[in-house]
Design a protein around this nucleic acid. Structure first.
Lengths: 331, 331
DNA sequence: CTGAAAGCGCTTACAG
DNA sequence: CTGAAAGCGCTTACAG
């Protein structure tokens, strides 16, 4: 690889001048800048990231901490993030956190401490207080996307209000036997997205005078939504409506209904959350939340925090009821 | 952040010894190693990636070059890659390449030349010969996943054979008016996946004595598959079967059929490619190709190439016809 | 505006 | 087995 000295030689200047010409920092004459840049382009010279990071402390790289790479929602958010960072010259390094404690420790205590990133975007993870401490101890600008800790700057939809909106849509249609499909954590910290959605659902049901709402846990995949919905539909007194905490689980519910010869919405109403690209094809009523735009905002927020040296401000993200053919009054 | 000197002081040794104790390279007594590691753990010390990279030339980071982050297929491959690299201590930096020439140049000539990665996995991109040259000039171990250039080591399914299998499945059921939905590139290099699939389709049709097979271009999304299938179905003499080059496009075709009141498979047979997580729910017959496992193999292949200093060997990946209810003899 | 030199935080021959 | 020192390739005060 050609180095800074090669360029310096070619342009007839010192390495210091090459550095200034290429970075745009420090005073330099126009003529020199042009000459140096031409030489660099000619030689295909690009500043070494390791050397530059070591000297400046900046990496031009953002870490994105994700729970699951293979969900539609996260892939979309990631794409949104990338669309904002790439044009600004930032790369993205992925850190995926599973449920395994050792794996999580590896990410929090080792990988993230290698100093590879200038800032962090943390996607909708349920973090323990202790894990939040360890994130904060990195001393890096952080933006949370989705409910996390209250101690991290966060961009989020009001998941409780979102769940209330979905639930009240079903209640307003006249449903009373409404089941919620979502996730329940052990030692539920109450701050994570699935919990907030469940709380919003419970609150709306309680307000409507329904004491013990139906609930079935599922892990946000189509398969598990399918399984959970199947169990609800096969029970003695099945629900007339299902509020699934994600569109993918709602798709699973639609398939479960179809397999049982149930007509949607006559025999069963289904509402999801996300605004998945396929929801329109399924005629699925959903609460759309625009993950790509969320990613864009998160990308902008970390860059701002890094460049201005300030903490990112909390932001409330929009959501919106999209009525389609999967919900109707109980038949 | 605590540095190597802090650990050296705490353990009562030199920085050189700390380095050896932590890396496991070079001779060191067991007692010292244990003492140094304890001190490092105590202080939460982790080697700085920039400093270490600069000194060794190794980054413990792999670049993954992707065309689209938001397709199910790529998200799955990425997850497979991550599952192999993370346990070996490698991070993943993402480089997404669009169709925009400037953006591509930015990735090939700038981002990838910053020296941030030890090796590269290039996912099913259609690269020009010139772009391949630029990739090779990086002097990095590279593994292609999916058809690329012939000049890069590549793991791939035989896309032509795969397309032939799909087409012959439909021919074997008695179909003759079969349409293919896929992608067609300008100045088609002939090596990219969509072209190979189309060629396989054309060849199988020709062998079966069908001279001018039907074709509709689409960009591998559900939406575009839906649009393309709609156009085919609305034509004067619609096909009795559709072979879509991805499951997502096949889903779009199923939706298009449903909207027109067509029964699948009685009025229309549909076959896809991928083995998408939803294909079972749709009863979609498909050629499964196991993207997660492909990602795992690609991850292992780059690591091997890096650690053994050899070029990765080409590998042929498996695929498999999965018969479901979306294909049957023409009604 | 430009250059010489120190320094960023590690690693690794080289001695001992 | 362990330490002192040079060096990895840049950047940036400090002089001029």
């Amino acid at each position: 690889m050609t180095g800074i000295d090669d360029v310096a030689r070619a342009a007839g200047v010192s390495a210091a001048t090459v550095s200034r010409a290429l970075s745009g920092r420090g005073r330099i004459s126009d003529a020199t800048r042009v000459r140096v840049r031409a030489a660099a382009a000619e030689l295909g010279y690009v500043v070494s990231s390791a050397a530059s990071s070591l000297a400046t402390g900046r990496t031009a790289n953002i870490g994105v901490v994700v729970p699951l790479l293979d969900r539609w929602f996260f892939a979309n958010v990631l794409d949104g993030i990338a669309s904002r960072l790439a044009p600004r010259g930032y790369d993205i390094t992925l850190y995926s956190m599973s449920d395994d404690p050792d794996q999580r420790a590896g990410v929090l205590d080792v990988s993230l401490r290698r100093g590879r990133v200038d800032g962090l975007i943390v996607l909708s993870l349920a973090l323990s207080e202790n894990e939040v401490d360890r994130l904060l101890s990195l001393g890096l600008p952080i933006v949370g996307l989705g409910a996390t800790s209250g101690r991290l700057p966060v961009l989020r939809v009001d998941d409780s209000a979102l769940a209330r909106l979905a639930t009240e849509h079903l209640l307003g249609l006249g449903h009373r036997r409404i089941a919620h499909i979502g996730f329940s954590l052990d030692g539920d910290p109450g701050f994570d997205i699935p919990s907030l959605r469940r709380h919003g659902f419970d609150a709306a049901m309680t307000d409507a005078g329904v004491a013990t709402p139906l609930f079935a846990p599922a892990d946000f995949t189509i398969d598990d939504g399918h399984r959970a919905a199947g169990a609800l539909l096969d029970a003695a007194d099945p629900p007339t409506a299902i509020f699934a905490a994600s569109d993918e689980m709602a798709f699973g519910a639609l398939f479960a209904a179809r397999e049982r010869g149930l007509d949607v919405p006559r025999d069963l109403s289904v509402i999801g959350v996300d605004g998945h690209e396929m929801s329109g094809f399924f005629g699925l009523t959903t609460i759309a939340q625009f993950p790509h735009a969320q990613g864009e905002r998160a990308g902008e927020a970390v860059l701002r925090a890094i460049e201005e040296g300030t903490d990112a401000a909390d932001q409330t993200l929009p959501f919106e009821l999209v009525r389609r053919s999967s919900t109707a009054p109980p038949g």
